[in-house]
Each structure stands twice: as structure tokens, then as C-alpha cells.
Design a binder for these strands. Structure first.
Lengths: 226, 226
DNA sequence: TCAGGTCATCACGGTTTCATCACATCTGAG
DNA sequence: CTCAGATGTGATGAAACCGTGATGACCTGA
């Protein structure tokens, strides 16, 4: 399995622990980022849009781990693994019912933690992309809830159809879609019209966002993103 | 969440433990079945076709938990949660790499176990997209959904007919197909044309992908992949 | 009403595909 | 070994397909 580029955020106030965990994650090809407090965690998570979060329950300050979990859960279904020092069961089950996907109790071994991370990600890898943000390339980010596409951080003016088309493609990333499928998904099943219409909008997207978004033409079939 | 009818098999030789777990699972609406040995486990799993398996590592008899896991994995991707008494880490990681999805260490609380079961099932419920990948050789992989063939990781530019032909052959791997069968499957039953057309496309495939994909000529008949 | 933007459609031209042909090479039965 | 039939291979012209600029209908807000 290749973890290259998979982003993990570590929320932990003890730098000894977080540094160690980061080291092991990076050794396995993950991109890991630290946050030392609950407040900082929310910022980093928003910024990095990680595929998984490692979350210390006993954070100092206003927001503890459970608070962070709740806040994150309002916006996304990203997997969360709790790290806890207190061994009582209430915390564990509570954590799980809160939407945590696993937990480890301190002291834990970094190797075990990494194994857990992989196990969870293996499950999640299904196209469950619930997060509203899609990284289409290094430069292009699509935000469904904001209904905005940014190129190098700058918002790009996309027409309604253009955005809908890109969003649909992003939601089916890696899947070759026929013009008919795209029309059904974006224009609606009952749409009657020329298949070639898709082409024109694809062209606009490529023109506005550049060719590096990876919107490939599948000859004789349709298009595929990613 | 409704667990009604979700089937769980408990593989555990200690009836005290398995009865307790079964009780808690049934309280939560699961349908739970027990197996007291590795041999029996395989029978019950085959019979009940569970959505999840709870598996004791330290089973007595010929087949221990790890053996059962391996055997099950040859046939299905059903989630497995290991129950283990030995607390050493090796077992844990080993278990995870074997394809286990989680584990608990004895003694565990039934409530915790049920919470884990739910957490795993929540993950699995996601509409698991079929991988649709064919490994044609060590170097060549065909991905149907992406409609892409990679040679040593690099995508190969295949024309529509070439891809369709290869996909059809891959879907009938190990079967010698006549030119007529290939034309019916790829070009369509109603296609009228020269049988030799197949030859030219086979040639293109061999040219682009190398001879090691194992696309054999069956003299006087047609072709066979693998 | 008008200006500006959106959007489906059209037509043209370049590119890719692909069935077929002709010839070379191979296979295996006798 | 010979030879007839089967398969491999390069070339080719036509058809299919896609990218692109233009056009006019339509909508919206000033």
C-alpha cells in the first residue's frame, strides 16, 4: 500500500509524543502535521483537510479532545483515532459513540498506532469523500459548500454549469464517465439535447483551470477526472 | 442505527465469554451465532454468511484464530475483529496486517466490544466500489472504471477497440476464444466484417503492452489471455 | 429597455481510429 | 521436407471523433 501524500493531523500537547508519532508516520510515507491545542487543531484541520486525525483526549485549554471531535464532526466524517491516558471505559465508548473510529491508550507504541492508522484508512478508502473539499491538483481546490474553486488560492469565476460539472466529475474521480452519464448527473435524467454540449463545458473548465487538473478525454467514451 | 438482522459470528472456545457477547449483541438487535472451534467456525461462517466476525486468536485444536482468518480471507473481505488474551504487540500488528479490522484484548467489556462492532460496520456500510482491476502480469494492470491500462505504473494509450478487446479477454481469462466470439463480445453480435480484424487489434495490444501479458494464439481457433 | 453574462447548438478542421488489403511469415499435418 | 492454410505485419483511405470559435436564444439585474 502506498500512503504517499495521505495527510494526517496529530493533535497532542506533549511534543515528545507528537514528534515521535510524526516521525513514524513520515517513515511510512504519510504527510503529518501537528497541532498542540484544540484551537490550533481546528485551524490546522481546516487548512490541511487531512484524511485522518489523531486526537489526544486530554488536551489543556478551552477545547479538549472531545470538543474538537464534536466540532470536526459537524463538518466532516474524517476518521478520528483517539489517544487517551485515562484507561476508564466510559471515555472509550463515549469516544466511539461520538464518531471516533478507534483509540489507543497511552503508553502506546508508534508501530501499533501506524498499523491502526493503516487499518482505518484501508476501510475508508472507499470513495466516501464526504468532505466538501476536493484537491484536484496542487493548485486547484474545489469547495462544495462554499461553491467555490480556487486556483493557486485565487478564486476562479465559474459559471453554474461549469461548477456543477466539475463537482460531479470530482465526486466520481478516477471513473471514466460517458457524456450521457455526465448529462444525467449534471443536467438531469430528463435532459434532451446534444451530447456535444458536454465538450464545450469541458473546454471552458480546461481553459479556466489549466490542463493540470487532469481532466482526461477518454476517446470514444467521455471524460475522466484524476 | 438499526442493526436488525445484521449477522455476527462469534468464534470463541470459552462459552462464558461467547454467551455474554452474544447476549449483548442480541440486545442491540444483531443476529449472533457461536462457533467453539476453528473447524466449526468455517462451517458456521459459510452457512451464515455474516457481516462481521469476532475471532478468538487462541483457539484450541488444529485451526487457531489466525488460520481461520487466512482461510476466510481467501474467500471474502468480511470485517474481522480479533479477541486476544496475549497482550504482546507482535500479535496485534500481525493480526492487523493479516486483514483484521480491529482487535480487543481480554478481558474486555461487552459494551466496548459492541461499540467496536458498530464502528466497523459503520465504515463498511459505505457503498464499496468494486475495484474492477485486473492484474494481467507483474507489470500490466487494467482498470475498468478508470478505463486505463498501466504498464509499470505508466498509463498506456490504448484506442477504444483495443481497450474493449483487452477487457473482454481479461474477463474471460484462461478461456480460448474464437475470433467470432471476440467479435460478438467486443464489436457486437450484429457486426458484419472480416474475422481478421481481430488479428490486427491483437497485434496492437502485443505491440503496446509487450509479449508478457500472455496473450496466446490458439492455432486454428483464436486467442486466449492468461 | 439595455447591458452583460450564461448556455446550448452548430459548423469547420484537425486528429485519431480502425477495417481492410497485400504481402511476409509461421505452423503442423502428411 | 513440403505445402496449404493460418497468422503476423505495415500501409492506407475513409469514417468517426474531438477541440474550437462563433452564434443567437435566454435570463437577470440595473
Amino acid at each position: 500500500m502506498s500512503n504517499d501524500g495521505t495527510i494526517v493531523v496529530i493533535v497532542e500537547d506533549d511534543p515528545n509524543i507528537s514528534d515521535l508519532v510524526e516521525l513514524y508516520l513520515r517513515r511510512d510515507g504519510f504527510r503529518a502535521y501537528q497541532a498542540e491545542s484544540g484551537e490550533r487543531a481546528l485551524e490546522v484541520i481546516d487548512e490541511r483537510n487531512p484524511s485522518l486525525i489523531l486526537l489526544d483526549v486530554g488536551l489543556p485549554g478551552e477545547l479538549d479532545g472531545l470538543d474538537v471531535c464534536r466540532r470536526v464532526r459537524t463538518k466532516s466524517q474524517v476518521p478520528i483515532i483517539f489517544m487517551t491516558a485515562r484507561d476508564d471505559e466510559i471515555d472509550r465508548v463515549l469516544g466511539l459513540e461520538l464518531g471516533a473510529d478507534d483509540y489507543v491508550t497511552k503508553p502506546f507504541s508508534p508501530r501499533e498506532l501506524v498499523a491502526r492508522v493503516k487499518a482505518i484508512l484501508r476501510r475508508v478508502e472507499a470513495p466516501q469523500q464526504e468532505s466538501s473539499k476536493f484537491e484536484l491538483s496542487d493548485h486547484v481546490i474545489l469547495d462544495s459548500t462554499r461553491r467555490e474553486v480556487t486556483l493557486n488560492g485565487e478564486p476562479v469565476a465559474l459559471a453554474t454549469r461549469e461548477f456543477d460539472l466539475l463537482e460531479f466529475l470530482a465526486g466520481n474521480r478516477g471513473i471514466a464517465l460517458s457524456r450521457r452519464q455526465l448529462l444525467d448527473g449534471v443536467w438531469g435524467d430528463d435532459w434532451i439535447g446534444d451530447d456535444r454540449t458536454v465538450d464545450v463545458h469541458v473546454r471552458q473548465l480546461r481553459k479556466k483551470l489549466g490542463d493540470d487538473i487532469g481532466l482526461a478525454t477518454i476517446w470514444g467514451v467521455g471524460y475522466r477526472l484524476g
